[in-house]
Each structure stands twice: as C-alpha cells, then as structure tokens.
Design a protein around this nucleic acid. Structure first.
Length: 422
DNA sequence: GCAAGGTC
C-alpha cells in the first residue's frame, strides 16, 4: 500500500483544521477508528492527520508500594497504565500506532509551547516507535489556512529538543516534588496525631495555600474603626457642585461636627484651580491574563469562561492562540492586512478606516513575552456563522483592543478646585 | 494516593 506522511496534532479540532487547510480541494476525508478521529488530506502526497488528546504519556514510579519515602525512581508510561478511567487513552494510542505503521514520514503539528512539544514528542517516540529524531516540525501560532500551509511547506527539519527537555523537566520535577512532599506530610501528620489522613502539596498548591493563610490571618486580625468624612454641596452660578473636605477621614465625630457647623450655609471663596493636562498612552495588546481581567470587569465572565470562549474563537480561526503570556505583536502578522479585513465589518468600519489613514502602524507593546506565541489578536477572519452573545463580546473585545494598540496617545485634562469656607 | 497540566 502507498505510504503516507503522518501529521500528529495535540487535539482533534486542530487535526480537522490542519487537514482542511492542507488538502488541495479543502475537503479532507474523515475517518474514525473506535472513537478516534483522523483525516486524510491530499497535497503533494498523501497526508494522514491524527490528533492526540492532550497528554497521552506521564510519569509514574518504577516500583509499587504506597507509603515509602522518599521516591526518586520514575519512568515515562502511557497514561492508561497510571490513571484509572483512562481506557480511552489506551485505544487512542493503539489507533495512532497502527496508523504509524503505514507512514514513512512523520510531522509534529502539536501546539508550539512547552506542553505541546512534549505531547508531540511522546507520541512520536512511544506511539510511533522512536520517530522523534527523524520527525519534522510544523510551527504555527494560528490555525489559519495561510499560516498552516506555510508551516507545512517550511516545516523544520527537527523537533525543538530544548522545549521538549523543558517540558519533561517540568513534568518530572513537579512529580518528584509533589509526591515526596505529599508523602512526607501525610506520614508526619500520622506520626503526630496517630490518625491517617491523605495530605497533599505541590509546586502550585503549597505556595497558594500559604498566600491564602496569610490573607486569612490578616482578615482575622483586622479591627475596624469608625471614622467620619465630610461631603458638601456648593452652589455656584445656579449650579450645584459636590466637593469634599480636604481631610478624607476624621476619627472623632465631635471634631467633624465642629467643622460642619463652621461651614454650613456660609459662602466660600475659590482659592485655587489646578488644571493638569496629561497623555494617556494606548493600551498593551492582550495576553490571556489581561483579556480575562478585562472580560471580568466588563461582563463579569470568570477567567475560566473567558478562556473557554477565547479557545472556541481560536478554533474557529477568528483570533490567535489565547494561551499566551505575550504582550507583543510581531510585524510578521501583517497589521495592515488584518485591519483591512476587519473593515469589512460595519461595527469596526470607522475605527479601521481611521487607522488605515496612518502612515505608520506601530503597536504599543508591553514587557511580557512568550516563547511560543504572540499576544492575542484577531486573525482578520470575520465570523461566518452567528456568534453567541458571549463569543461576540469577547471577539469584539479582542478586535477593539487590537485596534486601540495602534492609536495615538489620548490627551486628557483634570481639574482640581479648592475652596475656603469660613 | 500523593503533583501539575494537557484534553474532553
């Protein structure tokens, strides 16, 4: 039978989109084997695109037994041998292995970050039987046809072993640190109280608990004290203005009463007007955290909700990969083409036309970077189907932030008026 | 049965 190239992705939706982008007719064939989807795309040669399902391999101790400590001996193994309820993983790996037998070229198309690179590596090494050193790498940060085609044509000759090493190390150190400290904690609490209780800690939950304990202690130690503040309404040329007393808090009620009595119903005199002009720079492009913060403050969406919505928009090729910590927009993404494409939407028309008048499109950028992805930006694709209310809001937010990044600084003015009464 | 972080 004719051999083919096997393209491995991190998840089913990515496999579907990659197959669609690479197939010359845009109509890849979908297959399913025991619940595992994969795709046949025809290009310069036969391509089979098969997804993983996140991590299929993980770390496990080499010898059994539960309560011994410390434990330093571990090995990598398929997840179904380690975790209960992962029969699905067993089938998944089996399907990939069978497909690998018919392939003579292997291409890693997992997400271009630490975890993704490790996922792709493990599939190639274990499920495909030691193909990690001969496999090529497709690098992309959006699932658009243009970028995927370029990523395929210009595939890198080898995997990024630096990222893979970082992924392995993250995995292994988290395991060593977490399992050992959890066991130590469990054993010492049993020694102390005589009762068994499973306790756990780790790289993330340990420090997080510490922050919570500190905050809780602060809350419990807080003693509230009453204070008074004085607000006044003044009439000036027939209009009422609200002002406040120069000292924001007054501890004693009697003292506040004296001040109020001295000012009430008297006329005053404006002693100073302080006008200040200042520039407000455009915002930074969105990293995931700031997108989540903004979505919460505007719409009260939880960070998890926002991530899910953004993930969905990404899978529909409307925005770039949202799991990024970058606040930078490299010129390679072609700002002008994106803004032009967005101008087709009447909601964005005025703002995009204004930006397109500019001689130079230069984004304001933040300091944060990400090794694998740029900041979140709209791809320029407009929704083909009606978006849900939530998707619409997040998409709109990403588009508007992207445009704002190229804007001129705002000139703002503030005014502080001081008045003396009695 | 103890971690963390992918995916669904």
């Amino acid at each position: 039978m004719e051999k083919f190239a096997l393209i491995v992705t991190e998840k089913p939706e990515a496999a579907r989109r990659i197959a669609q982008a690479l197939d010359y007719g845009g109509t890849p064939q979908k297959f399913e084997d025991r619940g595992v989807p994969y795709f046949l795309a025809l290009r310069d040669r036969k391509l089979i695109v098969v997804p993983a399902l996140g991590h299929l391999y993980t770390v496990v101790h080499q010898r059994g037994g539960r309560n011994y400590y410390p434990v330093f001996c571990f090995k990598w193994a398929p997840r179904h041998l380690v975790e209960r309820n992962s029969k699905k993983i067993h089938t998944w790996i089996d399907v990939i292995s069978k497909l690998a037998d018919g392939a003579d070229e292997f291409i890693d198309a997992s997400d271009c970050d630490i975890e993704g690179s490790l996922i792709g590596y493990c599939v190639l090494k274990y499920a495909c039987k030691d193909k990690e050193n001969t496999a090529k790498r497709m690098r992309f940060s959006t699932l658009t046809k243009m970028e995927l085609e370029a990523a395929y044509e210009e595939r890198l000759p080898q995997l990024d072993f630096g990222l893979i090493e970082a992924g392995k190390t993250r995995h292994e150190i988290d395991w060593l640190y977490g399992i050992n400290l959890s066991r130590a904690l469990t054993l010492s609490s049993k020694g102390w109280s005589g009762k068994y209780a499973t306790l756990s800690t780790g790289r993330v939950q340990g420090p997080t608990l510490k922050f919570l304990v500190d905050l809780e202690k602060e809350i419990q130690c807080f003693i509230s004290k009453p204070y008074w503040s004085i607000k006044v309404e003044v009439e000036l040329k027939g209009s009422i203005f609200k002002m406040e007393y120069e000292r924001k808090t007054i501890i004693k009620r009697t003292e506040a009463d004296v001040i109020v009595a001295a000012c009430n119903r008297r006329s005053g005199e404006i002693t100073n007007v302080d006008v200040r002009k200042f520039r407000q720079q455009p915002p930074f492009p969105f990293d995931l955290g700031t997108l989540q913060a903004e979505a919460y403050s505007l719409f009260r969406y939880t960070p998890r909700q926002t991530l899910n919505i953004a993930q969905h928009l990404y899978l529909n090729a409307l925005i770039s990969y949202p799991r990024t910590s970058s606040q930078k927009l490299p010129p390679a993404i072609n700002y002008k083409a994106i803004i032009k494409a967005l101008s087709e939407d009447h909601n964005f028309k005025d703002l995009t036309l204004e930006l397109l008048k500019k001689k130079n499109l230069k984004p304001r950028e933040g300091k944060k970077v990400d090794p694998a992805h740029p900041a979140v930006y709209p791809t320029g694709n407009l929704p083909k189907k009606q978006l849900s209310r939530q998707e619409k809001r997040i998409f709109d937010l990403v588009v508007r932030r992207f445009m704002a990044v190229f804007g001129d600084p705002a000139i703002k003015q503030s005014m502080k008026v001081s008045m003396e009464i009695n």
